[in-house]
Design a protein around this nucleic acid. Structure first.
Lengths: 242, 242
DNA sequence: GCCCCCCTCGCAGTTTTTGGGGAGTGGATT
DNA sequence: AATCCACTCCCCAAAAACTGCGAGGGGGGC
């Protein structure tokens, strides 16, 4: 029992993952994966914007609901930390100072999440961001060895999970991802780094009115309400980088 | 010789990849990888928005220079296509209609890039985007079998290459991230999803003036010039998620 | 106890942005 | 050849955002 036993072969699992046809299949696979690894929980969590979550996993319902109700998304150090990282990270290496974070951790442990955790950040087009997380209750050394041994497999599994999630997600990219023109991108970039319209126009050596046309055009293409919204969308979709 | 022979073991290579200490090491590893796989070229290419390139690989110098001079970054269907994709893609599945694209392909083949290609998109924090590409000259069937057999290994290799590239990134200055208060975060989030100050204030059930205080405070903490700038910074620092 | 930060509210005036019109050039695609 | 799109420029009025002034209560840390 447990992850001390051995490292399971994942060959067949990824094939089945690739042929999954719905969230239900992913749920079954994630449960099987948890049993194979002998860890307490495995969760795939698409971290979407304004509170809207999406994913599958083995966390108890009460915890998932509590997470949503309490707005833990905003204070969860796993989210905060992984958002700035590329490589998988052990929960112990995250920043748990801060009162809210410690309270959150206590609450999580009380809900049986476990004292150990390992989260893999995954990013897709248009700023999509998701986490693939394993959690467990046990001593540090065992957990360190477990994660070290299975790191590569887990990265791959996380990748294929996210691929499927992207396939299954209908409402996440309904708007045709209309690309911005080069000039529009330049304008948005300048605004994103703090330039006023007048400054941006001067920088691009065009009239302020012309720049305004770009901003309006970009705003329209991005379906944004105002300039700030447009810049936010362009950023989170990875169209521009600051 | 060539990729028909067999599938090399990558066990040792990833370890060496993880212990690489500079771009030179990555260059050596990528050449070794090319020889092991028996393909014509392998390239890791960090695609920066501002036109700045960065990476390593086995493309001939003339081609790299020509790519930059001609501004191929803007018309390369591999870039365009992978930017909207999550999963690795064979070049044949990309959109090569368009006059510029076909001319680009002719030019690439003339420079010995090969008629086959397989590119893996990789994404990091703050909208970082890179490609890990293998290219070769040969028949379709062989290439299809090769890429199919080695897909998973290549995804992993691409991942670790990008990890190293992120470590080596020159302008990596972790500016002190001054945390925003909960109310400030709420205000910034609402603005980021398109609310006006009045709407945001109403949503939070506070006066518009109070909301303004939050925004100004957040702007000050983030060192931002205006609201749009502040939202952009909060987003790219992962303080808020939209 | 004191200080700092977070939260909340108000008024007045200036600057900037936005929304809605219109108009012409050049390049690329069809 | 026709069409579409990107790019450039202009005016005007209304809405929104910014600047600068001030005020008070509550909580946590030193």
């Amino acid at each position: 029992m447990g992850y001390l036993a051995n490292t399971p072969r994942l060959d067949g699992l990824i094939e089945r993952l690739e042929s999954a046809e719905g969230l239900e299949d992913l749920q079954l696979l994630i449960e099987e994966l948890r049993d194979r690894y002998g860890v307490d929980h495995i969760v795939y969590h698409w971290v979407a914007a304004s509170g809207q979550q999406y994913g599958c996993g083995t966390y108890p319902m009460e915890w998932v609901n509590r997470y949503l109700e309490m707005g833990y998304l905003r204070i969860d150090p796993v989210i905060q930390g992984c958002y700035q990282r590329f490589h998988p990270v052990d929960w112990k290496r995250l920043d748990w100072s801060g009162k809210a974070a410690r309270a959150f951790l206590q609450d999580a442990i009380a809900h049986g999440i476990g004292n150990q955790g390992f989260s893999i950040p995954i990013r897709g087009p248009n700023g999509q961001f998701a986490l693939f997380t394993l959690s467990h209750s046990g001593p540090d050394e065992d957990w360190a060895r477990f994660t070290d041994e299975n790191r590569r497999d887990l990265i791959l599994v996380a990748h294929f999970f996210n691929q499927k999630a992207l396939e299954f997600e209908p409402g996440r990219t309904p708007d045709p991802v209309q690309p911005l023109s080069p000039r529009e991108l330049e304008a948005m970039t300048l605004l994103a780094i703090g330039y006023s319209r007048a400054q941006a126009a001067e920088t691009l050596s065009i009239s302020e009115h012309t720049l305004r046309v770009y901003v309006e055009s970009a705003r329209f293409k991005l379906g944004a309400m105002n300039t700030t919204h447009a810049v936010a969308r362009a950023l989170s979709r990875g169209l521009i980088v600051v």
